[in-house]
Design a protein around this nucleic acid. Structure first.
Length: 634
RNA sequence: GGGCACGUAGCUCAGCCAGGAUAGAGCGUCGGACUUCUAAUCCGAUGGUCAUGGGUUCGAAUCCCAUCGUGCUCGCCA
């Protein structure tokens, strides 16, 4: 295994406020974080105890143990886990499922388990119950640990490539899913214990950039029809790109031919390693990319590295890939170009990897790029639009035939956001700019904060700065949450009203839970009450928590690490968003039924305070994984 | 036309990969709850042939096949 290039390299510093990333070991709340507290979660342990106990029980009855049928029971059942195994075994033992369930439950031995204390049946289901210690340990680990939900380090380096939009102009909403989903995927993997780098692959070698460079050098400000839509460099420069494309479409044939010759010369210069050409193209690429970075930083989506495509042309690795491909049995030379037949991978379209003039194509360079990833990382994940699906399949197949282990490569495919009237296009200048969406979101959030000021019960006198902070957290959070909470494969048609809906099931709904937690904890602090797990070691009796709502909330807290684990495993951050909603419901029930500061005894108050601290850590980190900020007041 | 996705309440979506308890939320509509740790909250009512038809199974929104609808894709573009 080659040593990762990035090992030992220090991470770029970044803001520690919610929503941004922070280096491992640093904490959201500015205190030191002690990794020994990192726990895989009580739910996961309970689940494995149930598996083991049930398998033993079945074995003792001489029944098959290959399918345990362990599942989460409906909300109205008080069991933590259940098994539907009796349905399947009914045929084997020749008895009705409820009777089988009864026999199985009777054979389960809960002796020796930490959390599994009781088994019973409900009709055909075997139900498993967690004991006090389950809740006590959950409370202890979550109230105590500001990084609760972070799983133990897996010692696995992972590169998440996302966005990678061609540097042709401002980021529009059509592609906004990419940085938002990509950032969340990276966050979730980080929470799951992977060592993640975030990459933006810069397509700086293609025809688009050659056209852009030619247009930028050819046209003057006077030739352009419009003023820049916004005072940032990519809004200025995209006008040259659009002008150039318009010229190529509409100018007289001789002029177009001359232009094409210049564009072709630029492409040849890149392919031939001509330094002057690299500089010319690089000037445009770097300028536009710089502006796009500025836009993405508003989300914020930040990157560890911008990897340029030309790098793999300059270092010879693209040529090397092409040479190796020619040697394979799948290579054919047809119609003056080198192609690959990928029928064995179920792809009937040939992949051209060298043009007739011997120059490389995007995918050829991307192959070299991916082999570079494999050399430097244990795993690679790419977030890309559905229009790149075929290309990704061809890439996978080709990487495999080159001898790479493609199991280490994962894709997240998302569907584009379209306007009701059709696709967004940078070249044509159609589309809603991400900057405009974020501006509008913040404006509306600000208006909402201000209109709520009057009927606020809490007299915490929001300053102008507070209003602005909340407007940003809520406005940007709402845009991100709306996108990250949906399955990426589903198509979205962009509607302003929908994207900016701050009603329930949106970011403010779950952010509010965090703010409510903070409100109680602040109140406790100003009243001089120590908060178990935060200002004190956790030393509370969970038995004091008599209310179902409190215990139910703790059970949700217990699930969080398992939610992170499966979201990371399946590369599905939207499941974390689903969790935040379910968690919010549990918290709101607790909030309604369990007064904390005015609890009837100090013991109960302390226990509930610890629950609030645990809930805060859970929600803060769930939101952080989604890339949504967690406001301390709103 | 071939390939790949998607189709769940009037609308926006979970649930599907690893089949199992009465298919869940929100918005909308209607009706309730603030002298209380924040009402951006909560409670109740309303609303579904899970696109259609078949198949597998004790059991299908979930797996398989077909059909219909929508999107993406099928360049020596990226």
């Amino acid at each position: 295994m080659p040593k990762p290039l990035n090992s030992g390299r220090s991470r770029p510093s970044r803001t520690v406020r919610g929503g941004g990333r922070r280096p491992r070991g640093a904490s959201r709340f500015g205190r030191a974080y002690y990794p020994q507290y990192r726990t895989a979660g009580m739910f996961r342990q309970f689940r494995s105890e149930v598996s083991s106990a049930l398998a033993d029980a079945l074995a003792s009855l001489d029944l098959p143990t290959d399918d345990l049928g362990i599942e989460r029971p409906p909300d109205d059942m008080d069991a933590t886990l259940a098994s539907s195994v009796a349905f399947r075994l009914a045929g084997v033992v020749g008895d009705a499922p409820p009777n089988v369930a009864s026999d199985v439950a009777g054979a389960v031995d809960v002796e020796g388990y930490d959390y599994l204390v009781d088994v019973d049946t409900a009709g055909p289901y075997v139900n498993f119950h967690a004991g006090e210690r389950y809740l006590a340990d959950t409370l202890g680990s979550a109230a105590d640990d500001e990084a609760y939900g972070s799983l133990p380090d897996r010692d696995t380096t992972t590169v998440v490539e996302h966005t990678s939009a061609n540097p042709t102009g401002p980021v529009h909403v059509g592609r906004a899913r990419n940085p938002i989903v990509g950032d969340a995927v990276a966050n979730v993997l980080e929470y799951a214990g992977y060592d993640v780098d975030r990459h933006y692959y810069v397509n700086d070698a293609g025809r688009q950039m050659a056209v852009f460079t030619w247009a930028y050098e050819t046209f003057d400000e006077d030739d352009l029809d419009d003023e820049p839509a916004r005072d940032r460099v990519e809004y200025d420069l995209v006008r040259y790109y659009r002008k150039g494309n318009e010229f190529l479409e509409n100018a007289d044939p001789d002029a177009v031919e001359a232009a094409e010759a210049e564009i072709s010369a630029i492409l040849q210069g890149l392919e031939g390693g001509d330094e002057a050409t690299y500089e010319r193209v690089g000037e445009v690429v770097d300028a536009v990319l710089g502006g796009m970075k500025g836009c993405l930083a508003r989300l914020p989506a930040e990157f560890d590295e911008f990897v340029k495509e030309t790098r793999f042309m300059l270092d010879g690795s693209t040529d090397d890939v092409a040479d190796r491909l020619k040697e394979t049995e799948y290579a054919v030379y047809e119609e003056d170009a080198w192609q690959l037949e990928l029928d064995d991978w179920g792809i009937d379209k040939n992949l051209v990897f060298l043009r007739s003039d011997d120059t490389s194509l995007y995918t050829t360079r991307d192959l070299a790029h991916h082999e570079w990833k494999f050399e430097n990382y244990d795993r690679a994940v790419t977030v890309l639009g559905e229009d790149h699906k075929l290309q990704a399949d061809q890439l996978d197949a080709t990487l495999e035939l080159l001898g790479n282990d493609v199991d280490q490569l994962g894709h997240v495919i998302y569907s584009y956001v379209n306007l009701p009237e059709g696709k967004m296009s940078t070249r044509k200048g159609t589309g809603v700019m991400l900057d405009d969406l974020l501006d509008e979101a913040v404006d509306r959030a600000r208006a909402a904060v201000e209109s709520r000021m009057d009927d606020r019960i809490r007299d915490d006198d929001l300053t102008e700065e507070d209003v602005e902070r909340i407007a940003h957290q809520v406005g940007i959070g709402a845009v991100r949450y709306d996108i990250v909470s949906k399955q990426p494969a589903k198509a979205i048609t962009f509607e302003w009203e929908e994207a900016l809906d701050f009603e329930a099931q949106s970011a403010p709904y779950v952010q509010y839970v965090h703010a409510r937690c903070c409100g109680i904890l602040d109140e406790a602090e100003s009243a001089g009450i120590a908060v178990p797990g935060v200002s004190d070691p956790v030393d509370v009796d969970v038995a004091a928590l008599e209310t179902d709502a409190a215990r139910e909330l703790l059970r949700e807290v217990a699930r969080f690490p398992a939610v992170i684990e499966s979201a990371a495993e399946d590369l599905e951050p939207h499941t974390v968003a689903t969790f935040t909603r379910e968690f919010a419901e549990a918290y709101n029930a607790f909030y309604r039924e369990c007064p904390v500061l005015t609890a009837e005894s100090d013991e109960l108050r302390d226990a509930r305070l610890a629950v609030v601290a645990a809930a805060r850590h859970t929600m803060a980190n769930a939101l952080d994984a989604l890339g949504v900020e967690a406001p301390e007041s709103m």
